[in-house]
Design a protein around this nucleic acid. Structure first.
Length: 484
RNA sequence: GGUGCCGUAGGCAAAUUGGUUAAGCCGCUUGACUUUCAAUCAGGUGAAUGCGGGUUCAAACCCCGUCGGCACUUCCA
């Protein structure tokens, strides 16, 4: 059997982390088995669907490296297919027109809840007589289409992550609506989610449906639809949900939840993918935690997917992101850092200063957790003029600092060339000449050169500043601070 | 309320499917390194596996009960 899976996001919001995780599991599964990955945009909710969200989803998929083999398909372009299926069900007598109004439904549910009963449609219009229908039509009521669900029916499937699942027809909420009220001169209105999904999955020959566990009840309904339409039923697997701090399903209301947000915050796509792979799956006989998508695909299996939901852990994500960042070459990271520096308002020429920027990246990349950390981490190294913090000023005003800095300045002035080794020599020499502790020289030099008492490696920072000629200017500034 | 699913340290999780002392990672913490923060390295902390029974020589794992959490319960997807 050819493995064919799909990810079917609805463009009612930006690409959500939960959807992305489902996409990743589908991707890993299909790449492990060899097969096709289909992307389908479920935009039948015309009220909330928007094209910019579709774009955001597509961008996010690409960014994460989740390449797909077919699509994107759009459900709104396939409405005829769903209408045909609705008509078929109507013709077979498996679906019918229901004239119950929204108000009547609300009232019915309210009554049921008051009686502590499960809210459900009571199938009241399942067997309407021709006269009743004529009566409702005469009243101007517009029918929805409902699919019959037998109360006594038992639905069973072998879930690939949860094992045997069983549902009773009576727990599905009564006959389900598969098409809305007609508008204009339509025979029936727009087909709804559960119907459209089944028709598409049938048409696209989806062999395995991997989705979040919030769809479990839908699966029972959809199996009934497969049967009614006389089609083979795919294999189902329901993955656990990603939870917020409180242990609830992660939703838009939990702050940062869309892939584009993570991107903006400075996470690398491979880190996000890696973290989500780990959230609910572990490889067999291994404690490996860092993998590329390809590596994980080699090892992936549904039988290793956990059943319990997993809380989203920022600390672990940060750690994974830092691991990827630390292992990257500065030449590869610098282009990703440039936008952050630009946004921070630092002045530089992305082209002309590229070598200098690579050198800067080299200094800081090993201590970055997120790309955005480059802003505070390199703040002190941009620009000719600086501000001195109170602590830095206090350091500069210590005994012996002025003569030490003067000596450094002299050494610098007479040096014909400059690099890290020469910098070390200068420091050594000055320390000896003034008979002071090395710590005093280093601390004071740091204060003078950066205006702060802590930051990236001082020798390398000095070398970097020197390339711009900023070291001399800053030393001068520091000396001026001391004498004022 | 109903139905379903789930429950191993603060978080993610492993445990050859009933077999020593319940892995590993993150976090937290201590130390080392360093001119500093970070990074890195090394060590430490923390769970009687939700709880109570039962079966067994032996239970995280099987059985019964119980509690808790979550999901679904749309003319949303």
């Amino acid at each position: 059997m050819t493995v064919r899976v799909r990810i079917a996001p609805s463009p009612t919001g930006n690409f959500h982390i939960g959807t992305a995780r489902t996409a990743i599991f589908n991707w890993l599964f299909v790449r492990n088995h060899g097969g096709q990955f289909i992307l389908r945009i479920e935009d039948t909710d015309t009220e909330r669907s928007r094209p910019e969200f579709t774009e955001n989803i597509l961008d996010g998929m690409t960014w994460l490296g989740l390449n797909w083999d077919e699509g994107p398909f759009f459900q709104t372009q396939r409405l005829d297919l769903y209408r045909q299926a609705v008509q078929t069900l109507l013709d077979k007598g498996l679906a019918y027109r229901c004239y119950t109004t929204s108000d009547e439904l609300d009232q019915m549910r309210a009554t049921q809840q008051a009686r502590h009963e499960a809210p459900r449609y009571d199938n009241r219009h399942r067997n309407l007589t021709a006269e009743q229908i004529a009566q409702f039509e005469a009243e101007g009521r517009k029918p929805v289409i409902r699919f019959k669900i037998d109360d006594d029916r038992e639905i069973v499937w072998d879930d690939q992550v949860r094992g045997k699942m069983t549902w009773k027809g009576r727990d599905l909420g009564g006959d389900m609506v598969i098409a809305r009220q007609p508008e204009g001169d339509e025979t029936f209105g727009q087909p709804l989610y559960n119907l459209a999904v089944v028709v598409d999955d049938m048409d696209m020959k989806i062999s395995h449906v991997l989705r979040g566990e919030d769809h479990i009840a839908n699966t029972a309904k959809q199996i009934l639809l497969y049967e009614a339409l006389g089609e083979e039923i795919p294999v189902f697997a329901h993955t656990p949900l990603i939870l917020n701090e409180k242990g609830q399903k992660l939703s838009k209301r939990d702050g940062v939840t869309s892939i584009s947000d993570f991107k903006r915050m400075g996470f690398l796509p491979e880190a996000i993918a890696n973290y989500m792979i780990l959230l609910g799956w572990t490889p067999e006989n291994s404690t490996q935690e860092l993998f590329s998508l390809d590596e994980a695909a080699q090892l992936f299996g549904l039988d290793r997917v956990n059943k319990a939901g997993a809380k989203f852990d920022w600390d672990k994500l940060d750690w994974i992101n830092s691991q990827y960042l630390h292992n990257k070459a500065p030449e590869a990271v610098v282009d990703q850092l440039i936008p952050y520096w630009q946004e921070a308002g630092y002045e530089f020429d992305p082209e002309g200063d590229r070598d200098w920027l690579i050198q800067l990246t080299e200094i800081i990349v090993h201590s970055l957790t997120r790309l955005a950390d480059a802003i505070p981490e390199s703040r002190l190294l941009f620009g000719e003029k600086i501000k001195f913090s109170e602590k830095a000023i206090a350091q500069l005003q210590l005994e012996n600092v002025e003569p030490v800095l003067n000596s450094i300045q002299d050494n610098l002035a007479s040096a014909t060339e400059f690099n890290a080794d020469i910098a070390k020599d200068i420091i050594k020499q000055v320390t000896k000449a003034h008979n002071v502790k090395k710590g005093l020289v280093m601390k004071s030099l740091r204060a003078a050169l950066t205006g702060e008492l802590q930051g990236p490696d001082l020798i390398q920072s000095w070398a970097l500043l020197h390339r711009k000629g900023w070291d001399k200017a800053r030393l001068q500034q520091a000396l001026a601070v001391i004498s004022s």
